[in-house]
Design a protein around this nucleic acid. Structure first.
Length: 816
DNA sequence: ACACTTATATTTTTT
DNA sequence: ATATAAGTGT
């Protein structure tokens, strides 16, 4: 028998493990079978043993495979216990998948392994070390809406709006600072205190910090930064985790911000000899980990990333983290994965061509062994709806040809673009699901129900209490709310305590009863969770059921005459069902765990692989996913690249990466679509093709309707225009035959600089029967006019060129 | 305090 | 266009 121990902190006690058949079996598995089917680079990445490893993994190069095999090989080769592994993924869904795949490879469960997102891991640490961190273990996590709520109140109280402060703006600024590990005090040290704007911002920041603390709440950014601060302030606490996690693996490293970078640095720091000795004395068994000096060496670090897929600079992601990895970790090994196992060569060639326009990057070319595949399909709609109709029709065609709906995805830059798509999809009966967007947990009725639970779990959370105070309506208005707040303030008690003491506020009897009833309900619910409760401990769903019943929240929605409330009631019922699922899947978890899980769901976590629907999502959400058929929509100037990115330094480059990410999601078929006009704020405006479209070699795209055709500057016949512009056109994305293939192709006729020359016919009005002359098609007769305003379309029968649809506002036509 | 009407901003991306 | 905010009247 060998005495080994798994320093798994879950139980806090070392385990004695016997050498036996089990161990032999694990050893016998060896690494041989784990390396099967890997290419030499992947193999190298799996097998490398050393303190730091950077895997530069191009899109679709099998990085998840490498990561899972690496973890499995560490555990299977008995180099590490599952509990010594910490793997950070981008979404909870990716984490679950990774765990499953590791266990599949090992053929055994691997309890104790931490595979989670940055935020989940930090919450876990903070709840565990709450006392040291100066927090209640039941702290609430505020999402962006909660944060804005708090800020709104502060700004109002300080009259800061007169200085131009908005909740969203301040929230952004605070978030940026926290991502840099700054707090109000450190900011104050460098602030220009002669600037009233700065002074006000500082005051808001201070108040905000104070209120969150008073409510025992943390925002998303705090989760990371507070963990870093905890580790820095308490080396002994940090040492617990430094000792435990011997292998730290981080996925999507290009999207880490400074705080996350620092967290990884702290976790992979060595433990000093004296601290290690203290731990040994405390019975923590560090002997087997100690090096010659008596300290515990830093954990091995593996990071995986691709700077070409860095798309989160706006939330503080710092591309330098990956670019300068070798400088940060001297002696780091770098492995490059360039072979792509996902897409066809045509798709990869397009992706390579686009991304090569970003100059400050290491050249990297994806390649595949699977062959060219289909061409990319292009389509230019007259409007967003026309574009959506094309997509719906094409999806139906694909489906008819045997492609499952779930293998099809539609991507867009902004959430607002879902509207046109949804309208058409509903009409065309295409089964679809919007991933992210207005997320389930962000709906008002769900936040209300959750607020009841938060009020029970974390009684000092004033925000949650204020939210439910008059939801559903119980006659407690803003005036009463303010009175309660100031009563709490003057007496130095919490809002909740003030509610319990409502009787001494001298309010009307009706209001007083209402408040006391609510407070009593919450206390009663809390009692149900007490372990000492003689009636036994209730689970999350019982408590929620009790609260919904007592507050009549559900009943109010059901009996409302607003037709939308019916759906809201169903949503609340869905939440109740979710609590039951949660209890079944996590028998040991409690209310706080449920609330944590709810707070940390990512958009992509909502994806259900088994659902037979088309998935709609933003390009950001699409990162890390792949589909057989991908529709990339709204490839227009102002949308991709987005208008707002124009001012940002590096904005257009990041937008290009976003386009690149979208392209590389497709396995077999890629569709690029855009519209000539786009509705925005209810106004319709003319849209121009994106500059990025021209970066794709023309011969890769098969235009069903090119931008040139859509504004009728093209035609169905080759024209002299093409030859004339060949100097530009053959290189660009649309005119392109390439210098080597002189034969003109009918479908490639977009004049090179069409983006710069869009005509405006103003309010030219046409009616059926009018004769017109078109610059290319000659004379014809209008047969019909459809559409409204700027997107009026004339259907014209040309004398020589046949029937065409023309966008009246921008077509090169004149009335005769 | 609540229901109704009118004004206004909203759309960049997200844990 | 739509959703929320603010304003007005009961």
């Amino acid at each position: 028998m060998t005495t080994l121990f798994d320093p798994d902190a879950a139980s806090g006690t070392p385990l004695i493990v016997h050498d036996g058949p089990d161990a032999d079996q694990r050893g016998a598995r060896g690494n041989g079978s784990l390396l099967d089917g890997l290419n030499p680079e992947q193999r190298e990445a799996v097998e490398f043993r050393g303190s730091a490893l950077l895997i530069v993994a191009g899109a679709g190069s099998g990085k998840t495979r490498v990561l899972t095999h690496r973890i499995a090989s560490l555990i299977g080769g008995r180099e590490a216990w599952p509990s010594q592994i910490l793997a950070i993924t981008f979404t909870n869904k990716a984490a679950a998948e990774m765990r499953e795949r590791v266990e599949q490879l090992l053929g055994q469960a691997s309890d104790g392994m931490w595979i989670s997102t940055f935020h989940s891991a930090c919450v876990r640490i903070l709840r565990r070390e709450a006392e040291k961190a100066g927090l209640a273990g039941t702290f609430t996590i505020y999402d962006s809406a909660d944060v804005r709520n708090v800020l709104k109140r502060i700004i109002k109280e300080l009259d800061a709006d007169t200085l131009g402060f908005t909740p969203a703006g301040v929230s952004n600024r605070i978030s940026k600072l926290k991502n840099e590990l700054a707090d109000a005090d450190s900011y104050a040290r460098n602030a220009n205190l002669d600037d009233p704007q700065e002074v006000m911002f500082l005051e808001i920041f201070r108040q905000y910090t104070r209120r969150l603390r008073a409510a025992s709440a943390l925002d998303f950014d705090d989760l990371i930064s507070e963990t870093v601060f905890l580790f820095r302030s308490f080396p002994d606490v940090a040492a617990l985790y430094q000792r435990r996690f011997r292998h730290v693996l981080v996925d999507e490293y290009q999207d880490t911000n400074h705080a996350q970078y620092s967290l990884i640095r702290e976790l992979t720091r060595p433990v000093a000899p004296d601290l290690a000795e203290q731990m040994e004395t405390a019975g923590m068994h560090v002997r087997s980990l100690q090096d010659a000096s008596g300290g515990i060496p830093g954990a091995s670090l593996t990071v995986v990333g691709d700077s070409d897929q860095s798309i989160y600079a706006f939330r503080g992601a710092d591309i330098r983290n990956i670019v300068e990895f070798e400088r940060d970790y001297p002696g780091a090994k770098v492995v490059l994965l360039e072979q792509n196992y996902r897409s066809t060569q045509n798709i990869l060639s397009a992706a390579n061509a686009v991304i090569s326009n970003n100059f400050d990057r290491k050249d990297k070319k994806l390649w595949t062994a699977v062959g060219d595949g289909d061409k990319i399909t292009g389509y230019t709609g007259y409007s967003g709806h026309d574009e959506a109709q094309f997509i719906a029709d094409e999806i139906e065609a694909l489906h008819g040809a045997g492609v499952a709906y779930r293998d099809i995805a539609v991507f867009y830059r902004t959430n607002a673009q879902t509207r046109a798509l949804e309208e058409i999809f509903v009409r065309s009966a295409v089964p679809y699901r919007v991933v992210g967007g207005t997320k389930f947990y962000e709906r008002a009725e769900i936040k209300d129900a959750i607020a009841y639970l938060i009020a029970v779990a974390n009684p000092v959370d004033e925000l949650a209490l204020r939210r439910i105070l008059n939801t559903p309506k119980r006659g407690i208005g803003p005036a009463t709310e303010t009175q309660l707040a100031s009563f709490a303030e003057t007496n130095g008690i919490t809002f909740r305590e003030a509610m319990r003491d409502a009787g001494s506020l001298g309010l009307g009897p009706k209001v007083t009863t209402a408040i006391l009833q609510l407070a009593g309900m919450l206390d009663e619910a809390a009692a149900k969770l007490e372990p000492s409760n003689p009636a036994g401990v209730s689970g999350v769903s019982e408590v929620l059921g009790f609260l919904l019943e007592q507050s009549a929240l559900l009943e109010t929605l059901r009996s409302s005459r607003d037709p939308q409330d019916e759906t809201r009631a169903e949503n609340v019922e869905e939440l109740l069902a979710q609590t039951k699922d949660f209890m079944r899947e996590n028998p040991d978890a409690g209310l706080v765990d449920f609330l944590t899980q709810v707070s940390l769901v990512a958009a992509a976590d909502e994806l259900d692989d088994s659902s037979g629907t088309v998935s709609l999502m933003t390009l950001h959400t699409a990162k890390g996913l792949e589909y057989d058929s991908v529709f990339l929509t709204g490839i227009e100037e102002g949308l991709l690249p987005h208008q707002m990115s124009a001012g940002e330094p590096g904005g257009p480059a990041e937008e290009r990466r976003l386009f690149y990410v979208g392209i590389t999601r497709a396995r077999k078929r890629l569709y690029l679509s855009l519209a000539m006009t786009r509705a925005q704020f209810g106004e319709t405006s003319v849209a121009m093709p994106s500059r990025y479209l021209q970066e794709i070699p023309g011969e890769l795209i098969d235009w069903r309707q090119s931008p040139g055709m859509a504004n009728s500057r093209g035609g169905t016949q080759p024209r002299a225009l093409n030859a004339r512009r060949d100097g530009y056109g053959s290189r660009g994305g649309f005119g392109g035959q390439g210098e080597l293939s002189p034969a003109p192709r009918p479908k490639a006729e977009w004049p090179n600089r069409v983006t710069a020359q869009v005509r405006d016919n103003g309010d030219l009005t046409l009616t059926a029967g009018d004769r017109i002359r078109h610059a290319d098609f000659g004379e014809g007769r209008v047969t019909q006019v459809t559409g409204e305003g700027t997107k009026r379309v004339a259907h014209v029968q040309f004398d020589r060129s046949g029937a065409k649809k023309l966008l009246i506002k921008i077509a090169p036509i004149e009335k005769l």
